[in-house]
Design a protein around this nucleic acid. Structure first.
Ligand SMILES: [Mn+2]
Ligand SMILES: [Mn+2]
Length: 917
DNA sequence: GGCTTCG
DNA sequence: CGAAGCCAACGCAAG
DNA sequence: CTTGCG
């Protein structure tokens, strides 16, 4: 099998004296090509990178070892081919042998050439051929799938030196400027270090049992997840049968995520609180799991002496931690019922369909009495549901078999179906009790948060308490008593209420909700110690409900405001670290940030300079307001990598693979070939745009998704056709108002600069326009452009395409022009606009853009396009609103444009009347 | 700023 | 490795 | 048709 090219190696090596390669050598000639990196303490410590090709291992010795930093280039000296089975060699090479010293398998996995972003993992012959071509050309690009090394790398042959190559990490998700991967110094096969070998330790059995995860479709090799959050279920009213769904009994306990990493076991509550200390037995079971790193999801429950599920027993168990005075029913057993696996030995399984994850879990889990696999059922949902109720369970969880795990998200792919309706509410106060309750309280006043973070009253609950609970609750409530009502609106009660700070959450059972959102026949069940008040919301839904089974569909894809704010806070903290380069984590995505101290707005005079860090802080700060305006709108980037005085270019298409968190949409102009447009639908993308020095955000006025005001006609089937169609229907009429009133300080031929007179005139025109729009029953929203003028957006139902909207806008502008011919112009020739305010309706065309709301601008002051209330328009000035000032202003007064898409009007009347004239 | 290509 | 180049492109108004 | 415009 080994021929000519290996001759050199054979000469140098005497196989009789060196240990045989371990018997775990991979099956040659099947599956993806193999790579291995051996750490080799020879005369000089180095790492040997070996790539399988044609039955042998192409090899490079890398003195510096690989680096995850794309800026770091490491010398890689090509050495002789090694035989394929050397890939699993680990141990001592005796003194006197070639390469004497210790060798560990520092990393291994598979690889594929990846030129042009095309991978050949599935085709050995193709992969081999591509590698041969790369070798001949002196340039290799390949993707590694190992334990330590992942992502795309390149080996380039240097001009000088026959065998001198450079190993460079490509920029991708796995690139990391901060982490030194060489810190991980253990063998991925034996767990041993070079030092262990020196000390005479023998490699024993492999420690990982990752059961062929390479074969589980959609399992991804990733770093251990930094954040662990359970996926949440939506509610459904009734059980159902569907072959695409499976059913689990719903256990009444504490939702818990178990994590094993770096030899440490952790148990995390639904809120991420570390509860490891509370469950010693379960921790012990976890320690015995045959995995080096692992994340499980499940429910911790308690059984009473009769073997029945007993939530009270669990509470008693937790309360009596460290004490022996527990009074409630005793827990006979504490059990962790595991129903999901999210991560295993380097593989992120969250993208694997549910049934796949269950299969892996079943194989991997070593069950113990304290840790069990939660069985699931298929078939008649109704039968399973009633069986569960008969067992005294709360109900069932229906889970879509093909669904992926979405950490921290409430998904319509998981539905809880309960026998009694219960919900969680924030306790906002209590009413006085009478009779034997006069010393405690009568009822708890309940509420929940709406999407504006306001506490909305939801009625009272006055039953379900026993004496102990009454006194207990009373003292806890009195400790958080407050003068002011925590509720948004007046609470309509005919008894006085003692208000409390909204800090406690109650689970309440009820028969139904009344029309006004109150509860009928409410019964207090328990305090939710594991839930914080801000999690109590109308709807946490974060995806559309495709099946229509969910009780309440979420608003859209947006995470709920509170979570969004947490994510932002998280980012702000990371951004403030004083390093010039940072890798930050944003909602589970890694973003490499560079040159944070680079000045993008130089300032000058009294103007402070603004850096890239300032830009990113701004973007994160306004993200909770900005993202909804950007969502699903194609973007045009306006980039200034070297600041506003440096080179500038527009960019519509990224032209390279985008980070996985960036959404794109293929659009075409009138049916010609499509181009991928970027969409900014999440915080990570927004920050990435900052990283690539996209100073301005220019968005389309149409979106790539349908909605209540815009269906897709049945005869459109091609995705490209559909997107082109959808993007032809604008959400707004827009007016771009620019003063052509010169300050006199402009250089010759330049556009007019910002000046008081011009801006005042612009505001005046805007107000005239508003008057007319009001008369047409249209709603108008105004913002500064951030430069010299104003933008007026008029939200409309998506019933008319750009052509119709354009025509209507022209009519409106002509009307304004007629009334104020001395100050307004719609002239297309620039010279003819001089001294007047240019009212531009010509942007109402598909594919045209304007600097979006809250877009930073390349002005000396680092201004942004600021949404404003109409009142007091004349009193503001564009330079009041900068990347430095706006986050605080928004936090203070909110976004006047927040409701713009809810203020849509029908343009029909206007168009009809226009047609008549 | 990221990436490719060329030397 | 270092230097240099690329990174939008359409449709409407008006002459 | 070309050119200017954003
Ligand atoms: Mn070596
Ligand atoms: Mn403008």
């Amino acid at each position: 099998m080994v021929s000519g090219m290996l001759g050199e190696y054979d000469k140098k090596r005497d196989f009789r004296r060196t240990p045989e390669p371990a018997p775990t050598a991979p099956a040659a000639g099947a599956g993806p090509l193999l790579f291995v990196v051996q750490k080799h303490a020879a005369r000089r410590l180095h790492y040997d990178l070996r790539l399988e090709l044609d039955g042998a291992l192409k090899s490079w010795a890398i003195p510096g070892g690989p680096s995850l930093d794309p800026q770091v280039k490491r010398l890689a000296v090509m050495v002789e081919d090694h035989p394929l089975d050397y890939a699993s060699f680990e141990g001592n090479i005796p003194a006197g042998e070639y390469g004497a010293g210790q060798v560990i398998v520092w990393d291994r996995g598979d690889y594929s050439p990846d030129e042009e972003g095309k991978l050949s993992f599935g085709d050995r012959d193709e992969a081999s051929e591509r590698l041969r071509r790369g070798l001949a050309a002196g340039k290799l690009s390949f993707t590694l799938r190992g334990h330590k090394l992942k992502g795309s790398w390149t080996l380039v042959k240097m001009k000088r030196g026959q065998n001198d190559w450079l190993l460079i990490k490509h920029r991708d998700e796995q690139a990391d400027t901060a982490k030194n991967i060489l810190d991980k110094d253990r063998s991925v096969v034996s767990g041993l270090t070079i030092d262990n070998l020196k000390a005479g330790k023998k490699a024993s059995a492999p420690t990982s049992t990752a059961p062929g995860l390479d074969n589980v479709a959609s399992a991804r090799r990733t770093a251990f997840p930094a954040r662990l959050a359970p996926m949440l279920a939506s509610s459904a009213e009734r059980p159902f049968s569907d072959p695409d769904w499976l059913f689990e009994p719903k256990l009444d306990g504490y939702r818990t995520i178990a994590a094993i990493s770096d030899g440490r076991v952790r148990l995390l509550s639904r809120n991420g609180l570390d509860v490891t200390e509370k469950y010693a037995v379960i921790v012990e079971s976890l320690r015995r799991q045959p995995a080096a790193s692992l994340v499980l999801d499940g429910e911790i429950i308690a059984l009473d002496e009769k073997g029945k599920l007993c939530f009270q027993c669990l509470q008693g168990y937790l309360e009596s931690m460290g004490r022996r005075d527990n009074q409630g029913p005793a827990a006979a057993a504490i059990i962790y019922y595991v129903f999901d696996i999210l991560y295993l030995d380097g593989y992120d399984l969250s993208g694997v369909p549910l049934t796949g994850r269950k299969e892996v879990l079943d194989r991997v889990l070593s069950t113990t009495p304290a840790m069990r696999f939660l069985e699931h059922f298929e078939g008649e949902g109704e039968v399973i549901y009633h069986a569960a109720i008969d067992q005294g369970l709360e109900g069932v969880l229906a889970k879509r078999k093909g669904s992926v795990y979405k950490p921290g998200q409430r998904s319509p792919d998981w539905l809880k179906i309960k026998s009694v309706k219960t919900d969680d509410f924030v306790i906002g106060g209590y009413t006085p009790g009478t009779g034997n309750r006069s010393h405690s309280f009568g009822a708890l006043v309940l509420g929940y948060y709406n999407d504006k973070d306001r506490l909305i009253p939801a009625g009272n609950v006055g039953s379900g308490f026993d004496d102990r609970l009454l006194t207990d609750l009373k003292s806890r409530l009195d400790a958080i008593k407050t003068e002011r009502s925590p509720f948004e609106a007046k609470v309509d009660l005919n008894t006085p209420v003692t208000w409390v700070r909204p800090e406690l959450v109650a689970e309440v059972k009820f028969s139904e909700r009344t029309r006004d959102g109150r509860l009928r026949a409410p019964v207090f069940l328990r305090l939710r110690e594991d839930k914080t008040p801000d999690q109590v919301r109308v709807s946490l839904g974060d995806t559309k409900a495709p099946s229509g089974r969910t009780k309440e569909a979420g608003p859209a894809d947006d995470p709920p405001p509170r979570r969004a704010k947490d994510a932002v806070e998280d980012v702000l903290v990371q951004l403030r670290r004083p390093e010039d380069n940072l890798t930050i984590e944003v909602e589970g995505n890694r973003i490499n940030l560079t040159n944070l101290e680079k000045v993008l707005w130089p300032g000058g005079g009294k103007q402070p300079a603004r850096t890239k860090r300032d830009l990113l802080l701004y973007l994160a700060g306004v993200a909770p307001y900005l993202l909804k305006h950007l969502r699903d709108r194609p973007l045009t980037l306006s980039r200034y990598p070297d600041g506003i005085d440096g080179e500038h270019f527009w960019q519509k298409h990224w032209g390279h693979p985008v980070p996985e968190f960036v959404a794109t949409a293929p659009l075409s102009e009138h049916g010609r070939k499509t181009h991928d447009y970027l969409l900014c639908n999440n915080l990570a993308t927004l920050l990435w745009l900052g990283q690539v020095a996209d100073l301005e955000l220019h968005t389309w006025f149409s979106r790539v998704i349908p909605g209540p005001d815009r269906d897709i006609p049945g005869d459109l089937t091609e995705p490209a056709e559909i997107l082109d169609f959808l993007t032809s229907y604008p959400d707004f009429i827009i007016f771009d108002i620019d003063p052509y009133i010169y300050s006199g300080t402009e250089s010759r031929g330049a556009e007019p600069g910002l000046n008081k007179k011009g801006f005042t005139a612009t505001c005046e025109v805007a107000l005239w326009l508003k008057e007319i729009l009001d008369g047409l029953s249209l709603s108008a929203f105004v913002k500064t452009s951030g430069r010299t003028g104003l933008h007026i957006f008029v939200p409309i139902l998506r019933h008319f395409d750009f052509h119709a909207v354009h025509a209507a806008t022209r009519t409106i502008c002509q009307f304004v022009l007629q009334r104020h011919p001395a100050s307004v112009t719609t002239e297309w020739a620039v010279e003819k606009r001089t001294g007047k305010v240019f009212l531009d309706y010509n942007q109402n065309v598909r594919g045209k853009t304007l600097a979006s709301i809250l877009s930073p601008r390349p002005s000396p002051e680092a201004t942004v396009s600021m949404p404003l209330p109409w009142e007091g328009l004349m009193k503001v000035y564009p330079t009041n609103f900068t990347v430095a000032s706006v986050p605080a202003i928004l936090a203070d007064s909110g976004d006047p444009w927040a409701g713009i898409l809810d203020a849509k009007r029908d343009l029909k009347a206007l168009l009809d009347s226009g047609r008549k004239k």
